[in-house]
Nucleic acid binder design. Structure first.
Lengths: 219, 219
DNA sequence: TTGCCGAGAGCGAACGATCATTCTCGGGGT
DNA sequence: ACCCCGAGAATGATCGTTCGCTCTCGGCAA
């Protein structure tokens, strides 16, 4: 990065600070916008509301974001990045079931942030239409699915997942279950982590075991 | 209701026809609004768009609905009613697992209607804020939960569901799973009924079996 | 039959409010 | 001196809603 070896040039600290100030302003706006969107939705919240929430004039705000759409896109991308981060748990220690459950629990914890679920629902709604936000959302879905596939395929090779399990629909089921729990948790205070975990683990084990077509009854 | 016993008054048939025409217009508007909302969301779609979709002028439309909010509420209530209807499957023949799975499959079929999932997501988003639509949504959630509780409690009394199963969180899990599958299906064409059914059945059986705390490994 | 009547459906321009965005301009740092 | 930042008024567009008007149609007196 240093262009000259000895000249005092512009100290990197200053440049970093300057960028940091700009980034800080952007983050301030994004956090304000997030609060506004949680309260009133992407289309329900006006720029004036966001400005008020960020304690900024429209003129100032528009120096950092070119449009409302750009703010929404940035927030959707943040959401994407955060959701994807929990998949690091897939590379931790323990059995494959342990790791999948750990990732799911981390996801639930992540979504406990106030309004996180409301925001996710908003992103999903937007994702159903063919907007740019939808692109981001679908891209993330594919990335999550790929990551899960890598983990489960390795576990299957190692004999930890039954050979007869068709991974793709199984992954869909796991993702559906996790997503469904997140949404339900927003309305249902009974769904604590302590109550979720054993069932989640049980279901995960069931899904990764060989398919049993025999008609079973409870004993 | 009849003020005179023998007078010819106004024949009821005429009145019925008049109401039918009005109901037909209302349904025409609701269907148009639904299409518009699916395309652009509750807040994204304007009354002009809805009017164009319904081939009506604003003046005409406002004779049938007092506000946009009223249209949204009517659509949310339709959604609620439809979703609740599938629970009739809980009273059909077969084991409790059969019946729960049948209800879930009926729900998936119901949600295959174009845009149904988009609409449901929109209703959920709105439901997260404390609007009147949220009231409708939560009311429906409770009704579904109660109905499931009745069925499962009866099955538990009959010994068909393990006595150790805590029904309330189990019901939450079942609902979460079903809802998650519906949402995922909107993005994932792989989730056909044929692929879903065995896994759904397997998971349902697992959830209704006694909790096993012992650490199990695949054989 | 003809002509007039009132009711209600429907139309589309128009309303005030609010939307996202831009313009103008004063103040502070270099 | 310059320059960029930020404030806040102003912009045209669009929002949900209303208003004044026309058209249609059934009933009734002549």
């Amino acid at each position: 990065m240093s262009l000259s070896a000895d000249g005092p040039v512009v100290p990197e600290v200053v440049q970093t600070d300057a960028e940091s100030v700009r980034d800080q302003r952007r983050r301030q706006i994004l956090e304000a916008a997030e609060r506004a969107f949680v309260r009133e939705g992407f289309h329900g919240a006006s720029m004036h509301t966001i400005c008020a929430e960020a304690r900024m004039s429209p003129g100032a705000l528009y120096r950092y974001f070119r449009s409302k759409e750009e703010i929404i896109a940035a927030i959707a991308e943040d959401e994407r990045r955060r959701a994807f981060t929990v998949l690091q748990r897939l590379e931790g220690p323990g059995s494959v079931v342990d790791r999948v459950v750990a990732a799911a629990l981390a996801y639930f914890e992540e979504m406990e942030r106030p309004g996180a679920t409301a925001l996710a629902l908003e992103v999903m709604s937007e994702g159903m239409r063919n907007t740019a936000i939808g692109e981001t959302f679908l891209c993330n879905e594919v990335a999550v699915r790929d990551q899960l596939h890598l983990t489960l395929a390795a576990a299957q090779d190692a004999g930890e997942v039954a050979a007869g399990v068709d991974l793709c629909p199984t992954i869909s089921m796991l993702m559906a279950f996790a997503e469904g729990i997140v949404i339900r948790r927003a309305f249902d205070p009974m769904l604590t982590r302590a109550r979720i975990e054993p069932m989640l683990r049980c279901v995960t084990e069931t899904l990764l075991r060989p398919v049993e077509h025999a008609d079973r009854r409870l004993g």
